[in-house]
Design a protein around this nucleic acid. Structure first.
Length: 481
RNA sequence: GGUGGGUUGGCCGAGAGGCGAGGCAACGGACUGCAAAUCCGUGUACACGGGUUCAAAUCCCGUACCCACCUCCA
């Protein structure tokens, strides 16, 4: 079976046919950098990183554009509240977001354009829309420019709505709009708004509306027609509807496929940006490792709602450690010169590929990995080294596609050598104690042997006896509620 | 009012007409000095009520509850 995706626009699973064979252009709506990212925010980053990785693994040449919105009403309002320049807030939050993505091994996109860097492209596009009769400058002197929804008959096609059935926004300020559903392409500078947040335009100084940036930047970096447009489910309307309407109206074919990820909710409710700190990425990472958080997200299908809970997160982390544990033991059993080859058409990778091809079926893909782990554990126990090498290589490869290879440098701890030196020191001490314990065991003095193990354990280190001798590891953090 | 999605075992979470995805937890067994790890085994799950069918968690009709979006939310 070939690669296929659920396309929000057509509401069905469609075979993926790229515009240009062997290439894929993806535009992902990134975040508005107005606050610290919580786990819900980064889901789309993780989900579309998996998409991007799978396309690359399937030999596509991928161009991946993920924007950041660095100027909008909320940024202006929040920065004013905090008494600092809007650009300082946006800059800082952008850094936070980058750190969160990096921690979770979300690969850097081909380019990460920011709205404020593309004002001329937007102005150009707005002018073209006016020229084509699909936009107009308000005649109330506000300097606003609106998209004329009534002039575009297929408006509403992406989200399956009819203009007449739409509820006019109760809170929307109609200002110079001809129809309450018209949306802003350009917003004239209002009194009290900082001069730094206003750019020159044919309609006076102002700033761009939200939707136009994505149309302009996608067009610039991916072309007027491109393959995949992604984002969170809530963006379907109005953001993506508007993007599509204005792009089509400007004569751009725009996206061939629309992919939307579902929510991470808490107690059944959407994670609101005003929620407490406990779900901010850095705080969650105090409880589980980044790779475990990523595994938790990847284990669910991108189109499924995830009800976030720390219990489920801990459970996922425990499950992932089972995979890691196998990798550790398998690596130790394989010859030192063993390297991970590109295992291809054979199982388990083939089953994994089938799952991934089916609209990124990561849950089924993870199940394939677990099956392989069980198989590998058997091979390990029976000393089938060649088979074990195959299984081990396949698992590493599959995990890498999901961005979950524990050996990935992205997950390496600490940059300073301190941690490594500390680890070496502990290793020497524990080894000494384990030697004493081994002597006691050889003497069948189990009371003494267990006493030594208990002492090591009290220091937070677990000891396991394996056929190749005792092995120690730092005990996993215990979850606390 | 309009549009869309959901309800699966103790828990998480797939599947989409016939064969019990997978994980976590639990229980039994093997292995072990004891553990740990690992392997083997153990479950008659699909919100409710009807219907279609040889066969329904899956299709149809209805009901209940939950959620999202309806103009600047991932």
């Amino acid at each position: 079976m070939s690669l296929r995706f659920y396309d929000t626009a057509t509401r069905e699973v469609r075979d993926f046919v790229p515009l240009e064979e062997g290439k894929a252009g993806i535009y992902l709506c990134g975040l508005t950098v107005q606050s610290e990212p919580h786990v819900g925010h980064i889901r789309s980053g993780v989900n579309f990183d998996v998409l991007q990785r799978w396309l690359r693994a399937s030999n596509y040449e991928v161009t991946f554009i993920r924007n950041t919105t660095d100027i909008d009403d909320k940024i202006l309002a929040k920065s004013a509240e905090q008494g600092r320049p809007w650009y300082n807030l946006a800059y800082e939050m952008s850094g936070e977001l980058t750190r969160a993505y990096a921690a979770l091994n979300v690969a850097r996109p081909t380019y990460e354009p920011a709205a404020t860097g593309h004002i001329p492209e937007m102005v150009e596009m707005i002018a073209s829309l006016i020229e084509r009769g699909h936009a107009y400058a308000a005649d109330d002197g506000s300097g606003d420019v609106y998209f004329d929804v009534r002039s575009w008959s297929s408006y509403g096609e992406l989200s399956g709505q009819k203009v007449d059935d739409m509820e006019a926004a109760a809170d929307a300020d109609p200002r110079g709009k001809r129809d309450p559903r018209d949306f802003a392409l350009w917003k004239g500078q209002k009194a009290g708004e900082p001069d730094t947040a206003a750019w020159p335009s044919p309609w006076g100084r102002g700033r761009p509306g939200w939707h136009i940036e994505c149309s302009a930047m996608a067009g610039k970096y991916l072309g007027r027609a491109f393959d995949i447009h992604g984002g969170g489910l809530d963006l379907r309307f109005p953001h993506h509807e508007n993007e599509q309407a204005q792009s089509h109206a400007a004569g751009h074919p725009f996206a061939s496929y629309w992919l939307h990820n579902a929510w991470i909710t808490t107690s059944g409710e959407k994670m609101s940006k005003s929620l407490g700190n406990s779900l901010l990425v850095p705080n969650v990472l105090e409880r589980v490792r980044a790779i475990e958080l990523r595994f938790y997200m990847v284990s669910a299908h991108y189109r499924s709602h995830v009800e976030f809970s720390f219990e489920a997160l801990d459970e996922a982390a425990a499950g992932f450690r089972r995979i890691e544990n196998f990798l550790d033991r398998a690596r130790a059993a394989l010859p030192a010169e063993f390297t991970v080859g590109t295992s291809s058409d054979a199982d388990p990778y083939r089953s994994f590929a089938e799952a991934m091809d089916d609209d990124l079926g990561t849950p089924a893909a993870v199940a394939v990995i677990y099956d392989a782990v069980r198989e590998g554990n058997k091979q390990l126990a029976e000393g089938q080294v060649a088979e074990l090498g195959h299984t081990y290589g396949a698992i590493r490869t599959m995990l890498d596609v999901l961005g979950l290879d524990p050996a990935d440098p992205a997950y390496a701890v600490g940059g300073s050598g301190d941690e490594e030196r500390l680890s070496a020191a502990v290793d020497a001490l524990v080894h000494g104690m384990l030697e004493q314990r081994n002597q006691a065991r050889a003497d069948k003095d189990y009371a003494a042997a267990d006493a030594i193990r208990d002492r090591i354990k009290a220091a937070g280190i677990d000891v396991e006896d394996t056929p190749s001798g005792p092995k120690w590891s730092l005990r996993d953090q215990q979850g606390n509620d």
